[in-house]
Nucleic acid binder design. Structure first.
Length: 842
DNA sequence: GCAAGGTC
């Protein structure tokens, strides 16, 4: 029997802490090793990894994209190397003296692989130690105790299935990405990527855009009448004309204009309608299933959160202990979730107390269940540990409330509706027309009472009886057109990816973000760029698999075969490599074609329009200082340029300027995004507008007689600046939006008039006051707050709070912090993470 | 500097 402590390895720190807590009965203490948390009690140690701590890649001699032919990557060796050095080092140190090891990573395929990676790291330093595997699908007392009482073995076949995926993804992704990037001469930051998941996702978006463009609208007409039970009563309602089509189905759209007009003539001349039938039905409306990641993102999406933002908030709420793990496919609550106990934790609270009480009054509580029951994690639900209102930001609170209320909904009663359908007729025997109205009344609100995000709107139709005469008080004849399909929104995209089986709960939202980062999509809902179309077209012609969902479907089958022991990793990856060989044979034959097409599309994405000076192309360029401007493609023969605003990244809109034919420009800058419009119009407006002098320049007024003036720049921005510019560059900013008015009031300190900003819409004018005082106040505010830590990607509100506790107040102090020392002070944060933040902040 | 999958 080996001596030494038992070492428990989990997939993440959070799980390690909770498992240690359960197994130790609360006595475990946290210690830090290499900046990694280790929980200790009795003869046990528990450490959390950070997902994969080793990664697959080609050896360094394959690193140079220019030196290595992409095709060579197909049969290149693949190495595994630590990617999280500090965690790997800590694990090795613990493993060396461990008497036994228990792998307690997540209960899914990737968890098995992560477990196997940990196993190999253990074996490197300790050949003898026995290694067990435990499996549980939620970190609760019962499940964890049960799992540790019945340890199992690692499933090496299942892990091999995951490894096969890693290899196939790397080989196809890297070889094709390098090929496309090289052929389009796009090396560096702007490389052109493809992959098994991003490919089909991008094709989905491009295909939809193709449908929209190919769409041929059709005219149709719809007819409506307002009916009233008794004249002057409040029993008025709208009814719509319908008829039975050739197949005997009810139809409302009239496709023939003459027929529509004839019907309308009858309708318009009718003064009464006779009720022909009344049908009343009671419908139950079942409460929704528990949240998996996709449905959570969708619900948060309807509150206005992007997929990325929703997940980031959920992550913070999870880390703080308020909600369960947010990455899950499961829509069935585990047996040991006791709804009453969880509801109990909300009683007496201001926001949720009343609803929790009313739910607890139900005789029996039977939570809803969705179709997916998985072993990974429970559905997303509140943990029962409640945040105070001031512990969370407004957004966090809104998302937290959504999760709480979704849980409430899943344990609430169904709603019942009364549907009332009335059919009435107008006209005589010859030209009789049918009108229908559908009313909806909520009889029992059920779950809607606790879940206001669902649609519970009623539509009124009064109580009428068969044979009753109704007055026709108004009629409407509406000419309409069929509409093209809508672009996918982010949550629809994620739902569709889930249906197609591409990506995972933890990656789908990242894939969408990647498409934005690569310049494939823009705006929200996302719209594909020319480059995206060219990439999809090239793939369709030469490497169809990489943009087809089939690749994932096939890989999924192969992985299952490996997991069952019916196929080997070697067989599957060898077959995949052969297919990629065939793809490259086709690409080699195409010569320069693919690259040319990609380059043309890249240029089209940047082309604003025709240069008015030389007839060449005006394109968006980036200056050496990193700012954007518009320049002529014929430079240096033509030196025409137009400035762009200094904030944001330019995006060309479809819309073009009527005067100049140039595309309008939108500046993307997160919440500060705005439409700049035609860059030439902006420049001309600035040239035409006289500077308006408002007072002496505080810098050079006395000495040189400089004066301050309200100026409009060719880039579209406005400022108060010195008339002696460029000899004097004194300036004060002015807001982009609204008209600047000069008031009669004068600032005594600076001798300048006070300014007011008035807006085109009716919103309150902004009394900006003296521009010098205003700017001074603005600067004071800025320096007080510093740059917000949360502006760094990866830092949420909870982490920001922890950093502040450790004395790091803003981005500047984060940048100057010493990573190892900071990691020691902040729970759950390693030095590598700090370095990543520092890099992001730069 | 490539992918996709974990996690932060």
């Amino acid at each position: 029997m080996s001596q030494g402590p038992e070492l428990i390895i989990t997939e993440k720190d959070n799980a390690a802490r909770r498992i240690a807590d359960i197994l130790s009965g609360g006595s475990a203490e946290a210690d830090r090793l290499n900046g990694v948390n280790v929980y200790k009690w009795g003869g046990k140690r528990c450490i959390g990894l950070s997902g994969h701590v080793v990664g697959v890649d080609f050896p360094p001699e394959y690193n140079d994209w220019r030196d290595v032919e992409p095709v060579e990557l197909i049969d290149a060796p693949i190495d595994k190397h630590p990617t999280q050095e500090n965690i790997v080092a800590a694990l090795r140190r613990l493993a060396r003296r461990a008497g036994s090891v228990v792998i307690a990573t997540d209960y899914d395929r990737e968890g098995e692989l992560i477990g196997k990676e940990a196993y190999e790291l253990v074996r490197e330093v300790n050949e003898e130690v026995p290694v067990d595997r435990v499996r549980f699908s939620s970190i609760t007392e019962n499940e964890v105790q049960e799992a540790f009482a019945n340890p199992d073995e690692l499933d090496f076949d299942l892990a091999a299935a995951g490894e096969a995926r890693q290899i196939v993804d790397l080989v196809w992704g890297a070889a094709l990405t390098r090929y496309l990037s090289l052929s389009a001469r796009q090396l560096g930051d702007d490389f052109i990527s493809v992959g098994r998941v991003q490919g089909p996702t991008l094709k989905l978006i491009v295909d939809r855009e193709r449908e929209i463009e190919a769409f041929d609208p059709e005219d149709y007409w719809e007819l409506f009448a307002d009916l009233e039970k008794d004249e002057g009563s409040d029993g008025a309602f709208e009814a719509q004309y319908f008829y039975l089509d050739e197949d005997g189905n009810e139809a409302e759209r009239v496709w023939d204009e003459a027929a529509a007009e004839a019907a309308y003539e009858t309708l318009e001349s009718a003064s009464t309608a006779t009720v022909e039938s009344v049908r009343r039905r009671t419908r139950t409306d079942d409460p929704p299933a528990p949240f998996n990641t996709t449905q959570f993102i969708r619900a948060a999406g309807s509150l206005g959160y992007s997929a990325q933002r929703a997940m980031s908030i959920a992550e913070d709420l999870y880390t703080a202990g308020y909600v369960t793990y947010p990455r899950t496919d499961n829509t069935v609550y585990p047996d040991d979730l006791d709804p009453r106990e969880l509801l109990d934790s909300f009683t007496g609270t201001r926001t949720f107390g009343d609803d929790a009480d009313s739910l607890l009054e139900q005789e029996s509580i039977e939570p809803t269940a969705g179709d997916e029951e998985t072993t990974d994690h429970p559905p997303i639900h509140p943990t029962g540990e409640l945040p105070g209102r001031s512990d969370l930001t407004e957004d966090e609170w809104e998302v937290y409330e959504l999760v709480v209320r979704r849980f409430f909904a899943t344990v609430a009663e169904p709603a019942t509706w009364e549907h009332l359908r009335v059919v009435a007729a107008v006209g005589g025997d010859e030209d009789e027309l049918s009108l229908k109205a559908n009313g909806k009344r909520l009889l029992e609100p059920g779950y809607h009472a606790v879940y206001p995000y669902s649609n519970a709107s009623e539509s009124f139709v009064p109580d009428v009886t068969e044979g009753e005469e109704l007055a026709v008080t108004d009629t409407a004849f509406e000419a309409k057109q069929t509409q093209p399909p809508r672009r996918y929104g982010q949550s629809r995209l994620i739902e569709t990816m889930e249906q197609m089986g591409i990506g995972t709960k933890a990656t789908r939202h990242d894939v969408i973000q990647k498409l934005y980062d690569r310049g494939y999509i823009e705006s929200d809902p996302p719209r594909p760029t020319r480059l995206a179309r060219a990439v999809v077209e090239a793939a369709e012609e030469f490497a169809d698999r990489i943009v087809s969902e089939e690749m994932t479907a096939q890989l999924e089958q192969d992985m299952q075969a490996i997991a069952r022991g019916e196929a080997s990793l070697e067989e599957v990856t060898a077959e995949s490599r052969e297919m990629l060989d065939a793809v490259f044979e086709g690409l080699m034959e195409s010569g320069e074609e693919v690259g040319k097409h990609l380059q043309e599309s890249l240029k089209a994405d940047k082309t604003v329009g025709e240069c008015p000076e030389c007839g060449g192309d005006l394109v968006i360029r980036k200056s050496r200082r990193g700012s954007y401007f518009i320049g002529c493609d014929s430079y240096p023969d033509c030196e025409n340029t137009l400035p762009l605003p200094s904030t944001g990244k330019p995006l060309l809109l479809e819309e073009t300027c009527e005067d100049h034919g140039l595309h309008h420009v939108k500046m993307l800058a997160g919440r500060k995004t705005f439409v700049h419009g035609c860059p030439l119009c902006k420049a001309e407006e600035a040239d035409e507008q006289e500077d308006l002098v408002i007072g002496p320049c505080p810098d050079c007024g006395e000495e040189h007689g400089g004066e301050l003036a309200i100026k409009r720049l060719r880039s579209g921005s406005r400022l108060v600046g010195c008339t002696r510019y460029p000899d004097c560059d004194y300036s004060l900013p002015l807001p982009r939006r609204g008209d600047v008015e000069v008031t009669d009031a004068t600032c005594e300190e600076h001798g300048l008039p006070e300014l007011r900003i008035v807006y085109e819409d009716d919103s309150e004018p902004w009394e900006l006051g003296c521009p010098i005082c205003n700017y001074r106040e603005y600067q004071a505010e800025q320096s007080e707050s510093g740059t917000d830590l949360e502006s760094v990607s990866g830092i949420g509100s909870k982490t920001a709070e922890k950093l502040k506790d450790a004395g790091v107040e803003d981005v500047d102090s984060l940048k100057s912090a010493e990573p190892d020392a900071l990691a020691e002070r902040v729970d759950g944060v390693g030095p590598d993470t700090v370095r990543k933040w520092q890099a992001d902040a730069d």
